[in-house]
Design a protein around this nucleic acid. Structure first.
Lengths: 184, 184
DNA sequence: TTTCTATATGCAACCAGTTGCATAGTCTGC
DNA sequence: GCAGACTATGCAACTGGTTGCATATAGAAA
């Protein structure tokens, strides 16, 4: 039931079409949540049926009609309740950890290649986040921050802290693959 | 298709029943992978159909019959290929990050309570991992480590590094909730 | 004596998310 | 002029995982 509340959270900042919500997931909220447009349209239809959101159909010339959704009183109440409800910790399901367990079955260098690939991906990801952070801080110094900007920055901080952990850990793995034993 | 390869990885260490695999997921491998017994039995049936594993039915007195599974040549080959295949980075889907975005809709103290709960859970989890680490290191000094022990320790290291990141981040959130603005 | 835990397997319904496809007009670039 | 991207919505099939239930016996605890 999480996507439902993610959609409500986005709509709580202002009315929007399903298409726009999907675009938001690809940009601003890309490191918090991901969902396909198919999923979003289905969820909006259900939320509308159950009274969590309301719709206005807006006709457009030279474009398909659009449906602008707004959160209702009922939707806001449900969202409020969800925000302080106990967050479930997701079950661990780490492909790479399992690959590590079984890596001795193959060639060491093949596994090292995969490690290097993951490390590069993590470092690339970190570069992106650091760039976003610089932009955020820049904006704070010029235009100032809204409450929304503050929490978006905190989300960014999470990415940076976890990314750092990932990079460090992958480097430990690489050292292990070279030395044949753990050094930490 | 990941569970399939997780099961193969476990069987690569020796033949086992579905029941025993499920037990392993609850204990040794609990921080790498989780799966219900229903899922495991289904996966084993499918793997058997497709020739990745073989079965022996063993009759027992005073117990239900059991099915002992062993990995086949074909299964081992498939596993080897998987181990060095590109690992997909899971799509971000962080309930708590979304709750943070919407937290201003409710009472600050209610959200602070939820933060504190998560922090406690993370710290409890860290205590468990640190205990496991001490046991591992103890064992290394007495009985010595196999290769399997080395990689299990590396998996533990991952938990510790990510757990630390989580604790640090939650404390940043708490500071924000007190000060009303970001301090990092 | 009853209840609980452990061993050992599995079916069926359901929910969330992915992938493929369909429709249909506008605008941009080659 | 035509290919491709953008706006805008949606259905249908499939995959992976969860939840509930069923069966059957032994031994330990209350």
């Amino acid at each position: 039931m999480a996507l439902r509340h993610v959609v409500l959270t986005v709509l709580a900042r202002g009315e929007m079409t399903g298409y726009e919500i999907a675009k938001n997931f690809e940009s601003v909220y890309s490191h918090l949540w991901q969902a396909s447009h198919q999923q979003i349209y289905k969820e909006l239809a259900r939320l509308n049926e159950e009274g969590g959101v309301s719709v206005k159909v807006v006709a457009q010339r030279s474009r398909p009609d659009k449906k602008v959704y707004a959160i209702t009183k009922k939707g806001t109440e449900e969202l409020k309740a969800w925000v302080v409800s106990p967050t479930e910790i997701p079950a661990p399901r780490h492909d790479f950890l399992v690959k590590l367990l079984a890596h001795h079955l193959g060639e060491r260098k093949d596994f090292q290649r995969e490690c290097a690939r993951l490390l590069q991906a993590a470092q690339q990801w970190m570069r992106t986040l650091r760039l976003m952070r610089r932009e955020c801080l820049n904006e704070r110094d010029t235009r100032g921050w809204s409450e929304h900007d503050e929490v978006l920055y905190l989300a960014l901080r999470r990415g940076l802290l976890f990314g750092e952990a990932q990079v460090r850990w992958l480097k430990e793995i690489q050292r292990y693959l070279v030395n044949g034993k753990v050094t930490e």
